[in-house]
Design a binder for these strands. Sequence first.
DNA 1: TGAAAAGAGTAGTAAATTAGTATAAATAAT
DNA 2: ATTATTTATACTAATTTACTACTCTTTTCA
Lengths: 134, 134
Amino acid sequence: MHITLESDYALRIVLCLVREKKRLDAKTISEHTCVTLRFALKILRKLVAGGIVKSFKGTQGGYELAKKPEEISLKDVIETVEGTYCLSRCLQDDYECSRGKSGICCFQKAFDEISTLVQERLQHYNFGMLKDDF
Amino acid sequence: MHITLESDYALRIVLCLVREKKRLDAKTISEHTCVTLRFALKILRKLVAGGIVKSFKGTQGGYELAKKPEEISLKDVIETVEGTYCLSRCLQDDYECSRGKSGICCFQKAFDEISTLVQERLQHYNFGMLKDDF
DNA sequence: TGAAAAGAGTAGTAAATTAGTATAAATAAT
DNA sequence: ATTATTTATACTAATTTACTACTCTTTTCA
């Protein structure tokens, strides 16, 4: 019931790019964030696919932010890495809830409210606010 | 980043006891909730230890609620089964955050706020409110 | 133009967590 | 005593998370 380590690493990586304010190659990012090179590369690919980071191939290549820090929320990064947040599986479209015949159980409303709240808060915090906060 | 299936089963089990309003043995609970007998027994032990359910040994034994439905929150059940909710490991006492030398990182405040919010909401919903809601 | 320095893609393995089972012992009622 | 129940401990299986290996493609620049 946690944010995964992978999300945590992704947040560090984005923070690293926010702070350095320039193009960085994967090796440098790996060193700054204490995430292994291979794993950092994998996460960076997800961030690129999610439109949070831009990549440049070849010598002098590397990664830059694709948006301004204040346009990148915790939600953007976390959901790019691990998909939409939901508190219980019964909120997922493909989940067959064995409790209710109707497909709607008494817990669903509560879980849905809480998941929405979490998403809203994760959306609220962005890297513009967070960057100097160490 | 989910409530586990085990918590989900625990909620069903408590709901079953709330609805039946009488002492039930593990086999009956298992049948009503579609949780295997062995696993239901395991979860019931946690619920007993957590003070949510009372157990009675021997013939005519079984389980009853230890409190009124309105005194049992979602939080009570979920935390009994899987421990305190926290969004990120960096909120756990024993977690060594490799980001900040100070032990406090810029994400911690946000995660802490959100975790608190989730706990508050889970506390708010109780089985008195939920029981008839199918 | 081709070697070097990057990232991209795919597939795999290892570790951790979650889910579930087996077995033997203890207890209470009759 | 016997039977129906819970308790306790330890185990195994399945799933998810974390991480690695290898090969390919692209870009730069001597």
